[in-house]
């Protein structure tokens, strides 16, 4: 590992700088799409930094999840931030002073914590595959919880969507899958819960 340490160091600092600069750009650029994707680039650089710390699995998962999440989040940002953020210049900065104060305090607290806390000495050697070790630590004793949480989360999402829409974008009226979507679509608003079953 020591042969390539210089290259790794350079790459790590490169990733770190990119992550911070693009993180800052989120508050500089004037469009929702650009802000979201600046954040995505920042996360990808963070994933790169994790890779260079030999945390390959965490690194690639950060890249995978964050790109996917930002692609979806861009839609929500554009949807909820009102006022045609596509074309209207907008700013991600609100209540300047409070935000600046809060972030400075947070930075000082976390930074001094990292510097001042007496870190424990390492005992024993790290396991050869840290990802596997992490997986075992989480999963072995909590497997049942994890297995239960997954389906519950999916069911929550599905039920939440089913309860909140009576009609949905594609004219599927109600939750009965045997019923085909209406074609041609029904005119006018449908009342929530007023499900048409006459075709």
């Amino acid at each position: 590992m020591t042969d390539s340490s210089l290259v790794v160091d350079l790459a790590f600092w490169g990733c770190a700088v990119v992550a911070v600069v693009f993180g800052a750009l989120v508050f500089v650029v004037d469009s929702m799409a650009r802000a979201t994707y600046a954040l995505a680039v920042s996360f990808v650089a963070t994933g790169g930094a994790l890779l260079l710390m030999q945390q390959s699995y965490l690194g690639v998962i950060v890249v995978l999840m964050m790109v996917m999440e930002m692609a979806v989040m861009a839609v929500y940002m554009v949807m909820f931030m009102g006022m045609n953020p596509a074309l209207m210049p907008m700013s991600m900065v609100h209540s300047h002073r409070t935000a600046l104060g809060a972030s400075l305090v947070t930075f000082v607290v976390l930074g001094s914590g990292a510097v001042l806390v007496p870190w424990p000495e390492r005992r024993g050697a790290p396991s050869p595959d840290v990802t596997e070790a992490l997986g075992r630590a989480i999963m072995e004793s909590h497997m049942l919880v994890m297995m239960a949480v997954g389906p519950v989360m999916v069911a929550t999402i599905v039920v939440g969507v089913a309860l909140s829409t009576a009609r949905t974008r594609y004219d599927r009226l109600g939750d009965d899958l045997d019923q085909t979507p209406t074609d041609p679509p029904l005119r006018g608003e449908t009342q929530r819960g007023g499900r048409r079953r006459d075709r």
């Binding site: 699995y57 995978l64 790109v67 996917m68």
Partner: peptide, 13 residues
């Protein structure tokens, strides 16, 4: 395998 997945997700963006 995971990298292949991560790259195809980039296409979303």
């Amino acid at each position: 395998v995971v990298w292949a997945n991560a790259l195809d997700v980039v296409v979303w963006a």
